[in-house]
Design a binder for these strands. Structure first.
Lengths: 230, 230
DNA sequence: GTCTATAACGAGATAGAC
DNA sequence: GTCTATCTCGTTATAGAC
């Protein structure tokens, strides 16, 4: 009984994984907009109706791929952070940013899925929010640790940004100065500008040594948030 | 004779514009990946083969839409720059950045076409490069003008970035210090990170007063490049 | 010469009957 | 779960109107 149920559960996990793998292959070949449950089923030798046992709709399959992508990226970033835990705050920041870039370069289609153009007709459910926040939380943690030590210089904050900066700090990083929280969110977005430009071809004919360029750009980003050289 | 040729030329221009307008409508509804010549022709009451008199292939239509989008964005940015010509360098920079954001918010699907995920199976030809460079050249111009006056503080430049910075400066902004040129290219990419995050929904639950947040973020970007407050 | 329309190709998706 | 009839697509060849 328990073995048969265990085997059933294991089979379900394996089939689910096979469906997502095949869907990721289609993502790379045709793009998220053309992801079709039928085509996935065909390439797996299944009939399309069988897929609905695993994913109730195309959008649910998309959501699963998005969550997987955020989690894969988040894991890579957290691993890099762990390896740099004993270094200074700027080095930690740079390590996380380089992990984001490295993951994006090795998973370009999954990166496009989560940070590229929205998929027409698809609206991400709230379940994608926590996985999407992982890298951001990691960066917040680095700045918070620096703030608790002596490693943070508070950036300037002008009067008309203050209300928004205070809201951001209250919502996302209550133990940070509002100026640092706002600067951090801006740097977070800017990091993805650098990665997206490289990945989507905007650096063609512009930047050649992209690794070096990126490392320095994100180090400057860290200093802009107020992190001190370690 | 000349009137008949003029009428023909005019008709050709009008039909070309109608095709592109309809294609842009489909872009908004279905996304670039699903842009179809047949659907465009159908909605225009034409037969699909007739479209080939105007665009030799689907990819050529896509290219035309991309060039139009870059030109529309470039024009908006240049207009904003002209209106801020008498202000200080930071104000000019912020004005151009705000024009980019404003254009993106009013043309989200065209923005996604040029700065979002690559279209599967499509490779942009070299003809897209000059229109794509317009905003960048505008930003270079602002920094160059500040450099010729007293309005530029040269950012620091570490040894291992120097070769790439010198290459960038030589290729794109020969009259700028390499450090400023490299910082400028990074800021250019980071600007689009801010716009893309807002447009693609990453600021959901994170940033509320997005206009204020954006203005301050790009002003900080300008100062990071070395521009002085005007 | 410039355009549009008809027809067709090969490939792929899709809906529904069975 | 399978099969088939009918859609879609990009693209080309061809013929005829202006």
């Amino acid at each position: 009984m328990s073995t048969s149920q265990g085997a059933r559960a294991r089979a379900r996990i394996e089939v689910t994984a096979a469906i997502k793998d095949e869907a990721r292959r289609q993502l790379a070949a045709e793009g998220a907009a053309k992801l079709s449950l039928r085509a996935v089923a065909r390439d797996l030798g299944m009939v399309s109706s069988a897929l609905y046992r695993y994913f109730p709709s195309r959008d649910d399959l998309l959501t699963a791929l998005i969550i997987d992508a955020y989690d894969s990226l988040g894991e890579a970033a957290e691993k890099a952070h762990g390896a740099a835990a004993s270094a200074g705050p700027v080095e930690q920041w740079v390590a996380v940013c380089e992990a984001v870039r490295g993951w994006a370069l090795t998973h370009p289609h999954e990166y496009a899925l989560i940070y590229g153009s929205p998929v027409p007709g698809y609206a991400a459910p709230q379940t994608t929010v926590p996985p999407a926040a992982r890298v951001g939380l990691l960066l917040i943690g680095i700045v918070r640790d620096a703030h608790e030590g002596p490693g943070l210089t508070e950036p300037p904050l002008s009067a008309d940004l203050r209300p928004e900066a205070e809201r951001i700090a209250a919502d996302l990083a209550p133990d940070l100065p509002p100026a640092a929280a706002a600067a951090l969110i801006a740097a977070w977005a800017q990091l993805y500008g650098l990665v997206s430009f490289e990945l989507f071809g905007q650096f063609h004919l512009v930047v050649e040594d992209r690794e070096t360029f990126f490392r320095h750009a994100v180090a400057r980003l860290a200093r802009g948030v107020g992190l001190a050289e370690g």
